[in-house]
Nucleic acid binder design. Structure first.
Lengths: 209, 209
DNA sequence: TATAGGCTGTGACATATGTCACCAATTGTT
DNA sequence: AACAATTGGTGACATATGTCACAGCCTATA
């Protein structure tokens, strides 16, 4: 999987020419296979990834249970790594490639310079903050105010959009893993959603109606 | 309740003299009684509050249920209102005074100028982001990975710190409201915490052991 | 003093979710 | 083709939380 400098510049276009050049100067474009860990909870942040192509999954983990927080799509970055690098803190989340990806890797020690010299670099930061704050907020609202069926339905719709497919190819076990619950519960609730004509289950995929 | 310019300057000291002067120039110091709404979900953000004295409570609401997200203490600001004003968005949370408070009110239309002219203004933003991201993340982790008893215990400890008191004067109904659950459940779980020697309940307060 | 309002405690019952165990069907590997 | 691994479905049972109803106690008000 190759990518040209043009694609990279395209994905960074909202940052302006001069800043884009500077970022390209200090960073590197790296290819990663699926399931490569980019960020680990408890570890110092060394790099800030911007997604050029592919998808990063940000999640939290406790014992043997995981919970998906959000996905980072092309032109987006990891707000947690921004923040952690600015104050030299450890990451509080995990991030890994959800599919083979191409990331622009900015060394953490370059962030301070970039934010000082290029106020518009903060645009990315502010944008990302708003999106992620609302992602987290939505998750909290769902957890507190709704039952799992609604959360599952919402998850399926989001997944269809992100993966650009419908039917969505995903197993009950994987769904359970993302939502931090049990596979049997997902199977049960999926049946409920089917009865409500919200989804149709095929042998290997789920179609959202 | 009066406050001198000295106290205000003190709370903003981390921002530097020049920026503090500029902020004071464009903003106003306002006194609010308890339970005054500063921010409303769905409404455009007109002001960014920085707490000089007192406490702001940020919460989310759905139908007749509320959920406390976090408190904003002196020297802290509302990251949501920062973000919303920068991109001229509506607020996604509510904020109200949790006790009578003194707030520095920055008009939203001054934010862009401040972030452009004073890169160090972003220090406040970055600081606040890190804290709030982790507040939200902690809440999610608690909701997914623990039961209510642990969330309740954690809430009581935090409340004790924020209110600077132990025993904490709070009713079961108020706790239920903050945690988005039912009063009877709180009563039940409180009994459990007592049996585990984590708290002692008095007629009007709860002592955290 | 009597009454109203607020708070805590409790039991009964309901619902949502989690765990365990097992089975059947399908897919992947040797 | 045979076997192993994976996946979905289901029932039984357990636990956590929510709702309803009520009682008792304490505080505030008229």
């Amino acid at each position: 999987m190759m990518v040209s400098n043009e694609i990279v510049k395209q994905q960074l276009a909202f940052l302006g020419k001069e800043l884009t050049s500077k970022i390209l100067e200090v960073s590197s474009v790296v290819e990663f296979e699926k399931d490569i860990e980019i960020l680990k909870e408890g570890q110092y942040v060394k790099v800030i990834p911007i997604v050029i192509k592919g998808l990063l999954k940000v999640f939290t983990r406790q014992e043997d249970k995981e919970l998906l927080l959000y996905y980072i799509k092309p032109s987006e970055s990891c707000i947690m790594s921004f923040s952690a690098s600015i104050s030299n803190d450890k990451s509080t989340v995990y991030a890994k490639t959800a599919e083979s990806s191409i990331l622009l890797i900015i060394p953490a020690d370059k962030i301070e310079m970039l934010t000082k010299l290029y106020p518009e670099f903060n645009t990315l930061f502010h944008q990302q903050f708003k999106v992620r704050y609302n992602d987290l907020l939505d998750t909290i609202n769902q957890l507190v105010f709704t039952n799992l069926d609604q959360r599952l339905y919402h998850f399926l719709k989001e997944t269809s959009i992100i993966r650009k497919e419908n039917p969505v190819h995903i197993s009950h076990r994987e769904i359970a893993n993302e939502l931090g619950t049990a596979r049997e519960v997902i199977t049960r609730v999926m049946k409920k959603l089917e009865k409500e004509y919200k989804v149709v289950q095929n042998s290997d995929s789920i179609k959202i109606l």
